[in-house]
């Protein structure tokens, strides 16, 4: 079933056309990798979906319903959670407080922003969540995020997205700056997210990771989607050549011939 559809999205910054005419769809329980060189328009596209800014033209559909996303809050309410590298968590807050940041469980709701946090519920829910997502090392919900490793932080951010039953989870370079083992941890986690029924849009520079977890590949170049293929139907070299625009396989044949 289709969860997210983008139709003819366009966005310009002054004279720069960052998004020319982007259209694609994302299905339930599917991991789609969004690839492209620097400046290809990947960030612009995900910022439009996650509500950082609105597009100049084009439509976004969530489960077949046309929606308008004007703020990050709008996107979250529609079940679209974006996880940016390094910017998703507040290091000076505990894991529990980070998990519920912006959606804190409170008592006496009528007090608005002055309402007291339901600390017991906060801690219990956080502990249950940490257990459910099965983060390998046992983590204390009261531990400060600043004491966690990069991979643990990514896992916390992703589990937070799952917690709020997000339909679409956008991962922006989730394996950047991570060690080999942590990278594998995060990729394994992405597969778990998929088997839990969430859809994932994965933005990355690392094509190897794409082939490990993605079902489908979308390649962008100069603000346009230039290719869309299922992982089974393509290979690393083909994808690489589409990204750069150069025909790598021809190049390879040439060198082999020599």
């Amino acid at each position: 079933m289709e969860v997210l559809r983008l139709q003819n999205l366009q966005k310009s910054f002054g004279s720069v056309r960052a998004l020319k005419n982007a259209s694609f769809a994302l299905n339930e329980g599917e991991v789609v990798a969004l690839l492209g060189d620097n400046g290809a328009g990947k960030s612009t596209l995900i910022k439009a979906i996650s509500g950082v800014f609105s597009v100049d033209r084009g439509d976004i559909y969530v489960r077949g319903q046309k929606v308008s996303i004007r703020s990050t809050r709008d996107a979250m309410d529609l079940g679209i959670e974006t996880i940016h590298q390094d910017t998703s968590l507040a290091p000076d807050l505990s894991i529990a407080r980070n998990l519920f940041l912006g959606r804190e469980p409170v008592n006496l709701k009528w007090l608005g922003v002055f309402a007291p946090l339901d600390l017991a519920k906060l801690r219990d829910a956080a502990a249950a969540l940490l257990k459910r997502v099965g983060i390998s090392k046992k983590l204390d919900a009261d531990a400060l995020v600043s004491t966690l490793s990069g991979g643990e932080r990514q896992s916390i951010a992703i589990s937070r997205a799952m917690q709020f039953a997000a339909k679409v989870i956008i991962l922006d370079e989730p394996t950047n700056n991570l060690g080999v083992e942590e990278t594998h941890g995060v990729l394994r986690f992405v597969k778990e997210v998929r088997s839990a029924g969430h859809s994932v849009l994965l933005i990355t520079h690392n094509i190897h990771h794409v082939f490990q977890v993605a079902d489908r590949i979308i390649v962008m170049r100069r603000g346009e989607i230039v290719a869309e293929q299922t992982v089974a139907d393509t290979d690393l070299l083909t994808v690489e050549s589409i990204i750069t625009g150069a025909d790598m396989s021809a190049l390879l044949k040439e060198t082999r011939a020599k």
């Binding site: 996650s50 703020s71 990050t72 809050r73 979250m76 974006t82 940016h84 910017t87 998703s88 968590l89 507040a90 290091p91 000076d92 807050l93 407080r97 980070n98 940041l101 912006g102 959606r103 804190e104 409170v106 007090l111 922003v113 002055f114 309402a115 007291p116 946090l117 600390l119």
Partner: peptide, 28 residues
């Protein structure tokens, strides 16, 4: 003390100072 350590607002204040982008991304 109540606002900073026990209220929802205090959570927001600490989060903003700790990582403003993260707080904004959560709708704070």
């Amino acid at each position: 003390i109540y606002v900073l350590h026990y209220a929802k607002l205090g959570n927001w204040i600490s989060a903003i100072g700790s990582n403003r982008n993260a707080a904004v991304a959560r709708g704070v």
